[in-house]
Design a protein around this nucleic acid. Structure first.
Lengths: 252, 252
DNA sequence: AGATAGCTTTGATACAAATCAAACTATTGC
DNA sequence: GCAATAGTTTGATTTGTATCAAAGCTATCT
């Protein structure tokens, strides 16, 4: 009980610097959300991309479907979900985003957002007015390339979610989901094997195209099989290879 | 029988100019795949984006997963599908693309393609080396914005496919699919109510996350209900409003 | 500390779509 | 023009997940 909580706290604090600086050039997430290979002078210019910072409390919206598009947002700390909804109220979670990732790309095409972004924990984002991004992209090819890569990465991610939703069974979906989450957390300095979920079973289910009960049952199944330990939001991946095998039997 | 074939021929030829010119500035698809609001001199410079043209025969690959990324491709004539595959051979169709649409964006992030593009009919593409696109984008903000919009549009499209795959039933998926196809064809000067499918039931099923038998049964159901006429690849949408209602009951 | 609300787990049953199977139709090649 | 192949339709049955239902757990608030 107590050590679970300790783990939870630790996961939250690992990427929080004690003193927060506004400039990209001195941001410890730079290598995640900004291009590398800049000299110092260029880096100073790059700081102009970020206009302001914005705090979003857990449960609050960063932007919402239909809202005018002005800026991209780089997540400094915290965790978001993005989702789209039908007129009759069905919600589809389209992604979960963590520190160093950029959201808001959906708004570019029509100058208004087509999805909602909700903070799943108290979060901090860098507001990057898209006009600034475009202007500096013209000046710095390396930034231009970076922006293109971020957008392409999102297209490729969504392709793989389509594969998940169109072709995979519940166990494969959840295995892929857990492996992806833990891999991204590990890239941010967290454990390879332990994580605390920031989203509900219902939100996981919405992302993976299954009902919350099925998500819960699949967690229980993995747990019974000794592949993971689950206790509510806390998950310990005991046998990562078993998860990989469920996700992709041929490549193990 | 004969008039179906006439319709088919007509649909193929409508966007084929008698004489094909290489330059964007004189291309009748320009308003679909290139930004508008250029003066003549700029347009001439823009012609540099397109390096060459390439003919792809029906069934042949334009690019394939793992292949090095060099160029984007604007479809001049023809029809493509893009797909991703798992190691154990399951295929997910990620999109169907027609004249004026751009494919290859998946390759930017890792400098290699992550999906396959197959011509579903004899096709013609404009090869746009990405280095040219990026260079001219820096020079022409309107082109830069256009490239960003194309990528954002793809992200938004994939969001809506995720909604389809995650939340909708077979009838809703097929209704959405038909409405989307016919709307895009109509924007290219074709009928609002008649179309000839370029893909098999299996490919439609792969795109929509259902088996070919279910696709066929759903077509038959729509036909029995008097919503469409189907004869193999030929589809006549008799009651577009009924389709819209199936797709989105609240917004009708 | 107890009450409340939100979330999760587990069980029983129902159902939409998958699978298996076979006949039918269109297209291609010789 | 006929055979072979590829694609489509329809029927019977199975199955994975949804749905309905109820109990259990956790966190929050007073």
């Amino acid at each position: 009980m107590l050590n679970l909580y300790a783990e939870y706290k630790n996961m939250n604090s690992a990427i929080h610097p004690e003193t927060i600086k506004v400039a990209c050039s001195s941001c410890n997430l730079r290598e995640l959300c900004m291009p590398i290979g800049f000299n110092l002078d260029d880096m100073k210019r790059l700081d102009e991309v970020v206009a302001t910072r914005r705090r979003i409390k857990q449960g609050d919206l960063l932007f919402t479907s239909g809202e005018p598009f002005t800026s991209l947002y780089a997540i400094r700390t915290g965790f978001f979900k993005t989702s789209v909804s039908t007129d009759d109220g069905r919600e589809q979670v389209t992604g979960f985003q963590m520190a160093g990732e950029v959201i808001g790309l959906d708004g570019i095409v029509s100058d208004s957002h087509s999805c909602n972004a909700v903070a799943l924990e108290d979060s901090d984002v860098c507001v990057m007015p898209f006009a600034n991004v475009e202007e500096l992209s013209r000046e710095f090819p390396v930034l231009q390339r970076h922006v293109h890569k971020i957008m392409s990465r999102e297209i490729v991610r969504e392709n793989s979610i389509m594969m998940l939703l169109g072709n995979m069974r519940a166990e494969e979906r959840l295995a892929a989901f857990l492996l992806n989450l833990v891999q991204r957390l590990h890239a941010r300095g967290f454990s390879q094997s332990e994580l605390v979920l920031r989203m509900t079973r219902e939100e996981i289910g919405s992302y993976l195209g299954m009902k919350l009960e099925t998500v819960s049952r699949t967690f229980s199944k993995f747990s019974e099989d000794g592949i993971i330990d689950v206790k509510q939001r806390y998950v310990h991946i005991v046998q990562p290879d078993a998860l990989k095998k469920i996700f992709n039997p041929d490549n193990c």
